[in-house]
Nucleic acid binder design. Structure first.
Length: 500
RNA sequence: GUCCCCUUCGUCUAGAGGCCUAGGACACCGGGUUUUCAUCCCGGCAACGGGGGUUCGAAACCCCCAGGGGACGCCA
């Protein structure tokens, strides 16, 4: 039997997501249960959004959780490189095969044409998708257009009729009509492959035996299978996991939940507890015990025990489990060590001390001044935000805009935070000190504290966002309707700011 | 809108046709231990989405409906 090889293939386009860790956990667990290999591949074919910082953050977050891999961009391996941006030559030779066999074709349609096509299809309520316009081009026409340097993409052909039938390890037979499948772009106009193409090529050459991924991929599986068929390769076995959910059952998102692994680290969760908690999303030990290690999970793993209902990521239960780990797994010596490592990282303390030094007359003043750097969410109430000029509504708006602005920052540095606040104060036509007032309360729990801008920089985006969101919730929250209006206003503001 | 997936307590789940009067855990409520609180222990509340079949028997199997979710990008 073929050796089991699974992978996690994150895209380095944002914060390390708990959903990535969740899927990684099950892939790794399955591979190790079968004495196979678990590998990590970076899918950075989106040149615009991929960043090396994000890649580093993702690797370190997965490492923090103990989700180690035996092959990856950092450790190498026999199928290196493990970063798609370094594998371009391979995609180029592979796409040629599909063009030769007429399974792929050049498409010169403009974005404008595709847009109006889609609009027309929507209006006629017919299926939305590429209409095969460039399929009619002769070989000579194509050659000419390429020779003149006309911008183009490469798409895959899709059968006109029939169904794609495949078997999912968890869900059994799934049948999707080819008419539902669009002629997917395989190579973008920048010459780089899309996810669908690179993913199939790499999974083949990296000898991936089982693809365990989120159920959001079910509908594109036919494309992937078809590519394997076009190439004459053996396809892996697919297994689509349920998606982690927000409390309202929608797909877990940072708008509604802390999704960044960094948040859980910065809040002082133990990696063992977080990974245990993820392991009980959709899966249970045969004997029903809830506290277990990754090793115990591997020893008892049974993929068929996965339940398919989308599990709600419920922080309350994670809190209980984390407390259980702290109480039961840490003796006092270990507690001291881990707590100190978490709280007193030299680099961090070095940044905090200058902020409080001028305010300290005795060392006994330090803890009250700096406590909020070591805390989770401050204890605040709506009355904490009472202000002589700003209404509660204005304050909620400020807080929300600040969150959205912070999320756009490339580099969450003190200076960027400051200029963001200044810009926002201008745009909202309030004084900077008034704009900052709700931030002081939200971040430190008090209207007076150390520089809130420096504090935010030290706390980092994950904790900052959680506190700002908590403040909004304390003020009664923002209704859906209100949120829509704010989003529109925010976009307008952003556009005018861009034009400056 | 079209297609696909899913559906047991508020939440995570057990359940592979009779062991189900549906079990455990979190949360919540009550009680006990504790100088207080927390921990810990004990107890309580609370669910098979609806309708049809199949069967001697359905939470479990089939069909329909409803609800939820996802996909429909030169993002992954």
């Amino acid at each position: 039997m073929q050796k089991v090889r699974t992978r996690i293939a994150p895209s380095p386009t944002g914060d390390p997501h708990v959903g990535t860790a969740y899927i990684a956990l099950f892939n790794r667990c399955f591979a190790m249960q079968h004495g196979g290999e678990f590998i990590l591949r970076i899918e950075d074919t989106d040149q615009v959004r991929s960043t090396t910082k994000s890649e580093q953050d993702i690797l370190s977050a997965l490492n923090w959780l103990g989700l180690t891999w035996s092959e990856g961009p950092d450790v190498g391996g026999q199928f290196a490189p493990y970063r798609q941006s370094e594998r371009s030559a391979l995609y180029t030779t592979e796409i040629l095969k599909l063009i030769d066999s007429k399974h792929a074709f050049h498409c010169f349609c403009t974005a404008g044409r595709l847009q109006s096509l889609r609009a027309k299809q929507m209006e006629e309520k017919s299926a939305v998708g590429y209409d095969g316009h460039c399929l009619k081009l002769s070989i000579d026409e194509v050659a000419l257009k390429i020779a003149t340097g006309e911008e183009h993409v490469i798409r895959m052909r899709i059968p006109a009729e029939g169904d794609c039938v495949f078997s999912d390890m968890l869900r059994g037979e799934i049948r999707i009509s080819w008419q539902q499948i669009d002629m997917q772009v395989l190579i973008k106009s920048d010459g780089l492959p899309t996810y669908h193409f690179a993913n199939v090529v790499d999974d083949h050459y990296m000898q991936i035996s089982h693809v365990i991924r989120g159920e959001e991929w079910i509908n594109s599986t036919p494309k992937h299978l078809l590519l394997y068929q076009y190439f004459g390769w053996q396809a892996p076995i697919y297994c689509h996991m349920p998606l982690l959910r927000n409390t309202d059952k929608s797909k877990l998102s940072k708008r509604k939940n802390p999704t960044s692994i960094g948040y859980y680290r910065d809040m002082g969760y133990l990696p063992e507890a977080v990974i245990n908690y993820l392991g009980m999303m959709g899966w249970t030990m045969p004997d029903g015990r809830e506290k277990f290690t990754p090793q115990e999970m591997i020893e008892n793993f049974d993929l068929s025990r996965i339940s398919l209902g989308g599990p709600v990521f419920d922080v309350t239960k994670l809190d209980w489990l984390n407390g259980k780990y702290i109480r039961e797994n840490l003796d006092d010596v270990q507690f001291v060590k881990l707590f100190a490592e978490w709280a007193f990282k030299t680099e961090r303390v070095t940044r905090i001390i200058p902020l409080i030094k001028d305010r300290v007359e005795r060392f006994s003043d330090v803890a009250p001044l700096a406590a909020f750097f070591l805390a989770g969410l401050p204890e605040i109430s709506a009355s904490s935000f009472e202000h002589k000029k700003l209404t509660s509504e204005e304050i909620r708006k400020i807080l929300q805009f600040v969150i959205w602005q912070f999320e756009c920052l490339r580099d969450f540095s003190r200076d960027e935070i400051e200029s963001t606040c200044n810009k926002l104060a201008d745009a909202l036509n309030v004084k900077i000190r008034d704009l900052l007032f709700p931030l002081f309360v939200a971040i430190s729990g008090k209207s007076a504290s150390t520089s809130v801008i420096d504090s935010i920089g030290i706390l980092g985006l994950d904790i900052t966002r959680a506190r700002l969101r908590h403040a909004i919730a304390t003020l009664g929250g923002i209704s859906n309707k209100e949120s829509k209006a704010l989003e529109k206003e925010f976009r307008d503001f952003w556009q005018t700011a861009e034009n400056d």
